[in-house]
């Protein structure tokens, strides 16, 4: 089996407290019953609008968020509990790249200390070895050696994000959760960071969980893509399936909303977008149940799943 991580019926609910005694009156269903598997060496895209729960899934996998129910299996072992994670070196094997590089790097620490921190947690290296290792990590992300003794504020946004990548790779992880790693960056800098991420993947055989709202970037990076809204998946499929044969109206609407660089056909594009948007509003009942919740996923084929009430009547 090449399955690295399996997520079974994951739920993360936040309590809403109110009233005089601050009692729990309701819950926010940030993630509400999500299943998927991550295989070795592949990139998974998690796409959704803000508030859809995509970052919460990422945090839950890394262990920054308590799960309400459900299981996270790593190599077949349950790592939902903190103690279980520790025993099998899960924290070493799963790392994270954050969206805002500046606030995820300690401004008082030098680059060498920032990047060596995860190494110090898990390995015992001499100062010399550690320095050598950090140098090689800087080299991987294309940073010069003299960056070692600098502080985060001395770097540009793209360089900071590359430091974040170097830190995430430091412990030779098997999975990196990348939460919007390039959305704060300019186009040419974004290209740089994405190139490094791809190169590192080829070198180390990593898996990525790539969380983003940018469908263009996701298309470039990911093998399998999951579209999410209101804490649930509406569609999972390979890149081709999602982009050429989307089944759920939500996916269609999201895809049609991306601005296209095709000046000659912009009128047509705008019309399709409006048509799909209208469809989205008129067909609410078809695609969501009475409570406005997304249906459970139905299997179309081995890789393509979509949340529909009844697949047969759709005539797929």
């Amino acid at each position: 089996m090449t399955e690295l991580i399996q997520i079974k019926d994951l739920k993360v609910h936040y309590p809403i407290r109110s009233g005089f005694f601050n009692r729990v009156t309701d819950y926010v269903y940030a993630v509400d019953g999500v299943n998927f598997t991550i295989e070795k060496g592949k990139t998974y895209g998690l796409v959704g609008e803000s508030g859809s729960g995509k970052s919460t899934i990422g945090k839950a996998i890394v262990g920054l968020e308590k799960t309400t129910s459900g299981q996270i299996l790593y190599d077949g072992k349950d790592v939902t509990k903190r103690s279980a994670r520790h025993a099998i070196g899960y924290n070493k094997d799963v790392q994270m790249i954050f969206q805002d590089a500046m606030s995820s790097l300690n401004p008082k620490k030098r680059v060498i200390d920032i990047i060596a921190e995860p190494i110090r947690n898990f390995e015992r290296l001499s100062d010399q070895e550690e320095k050598k290792k950090v140098k090689s990590l800087l080299d991987i992300v294309g940073m010069p050696e003299d960056a070692l003794y600098k502080y985060p504020h001395e770097f540009s946004g793209g360089q900071r994000q590359r430091l974040g990548v170097a830190r995430a790779v430091a412990t030779n992880p098997k999975l990196i959760v990348a939460d919007e790693p390039v959305s704060a960056l300019d186009l040419s800098v974004q290209a740089q960071v994405l190139n490094f991420m791809k190169r590192i993947q080829e070198e180390y055989g990593l898996s990525y969980l790539f969380i983003s709202h940018d469908l263009g970037v996701v298309k470039y990076m990911c093998d399998t893509i999951a579209i999410m809204t209101k804490g649930r998946f509406v569609e999972i499929g390979t890149r081709e399936e999602i982009y050429t044969n989307p089944q759920h109206i939500y996916t269609k609407r999201l895809l049609s909303a991306i601005p296209k660089i095709d000046v000659a056909h912009r009128k047509e594009h705008m019309e399709t977008r409006r048509k799909v948007d209208q469809e989205y509003h008129t067909l609410q009942k078809e695609y969501y149940d009475e409570a406005g919740r997304v249906y459970d996923l139905q299997t179309l084929n081995a890789t393509h799943q979509v949340a529909l009430r009844n697949v047969e009547s759709e005539g797929v």
Binding site: G158, S188, A191, N195, K198, G216, V217, K219, Y220, I261
Partner: peptide
């Protein structure tokens, strides 16, 4: 031209993205 070239393209998944050198 460089800017247009660094956009992730529809059909070139294998190719590396174009990076403008320097800062």
């Amino acid at each position: 031209r460089s800017l247009l070239n660094s956009i992730p393209r529809e059909d070139e998944f294998e190719q590396e993205l174009h990076v403008i050198e320097g800062t």
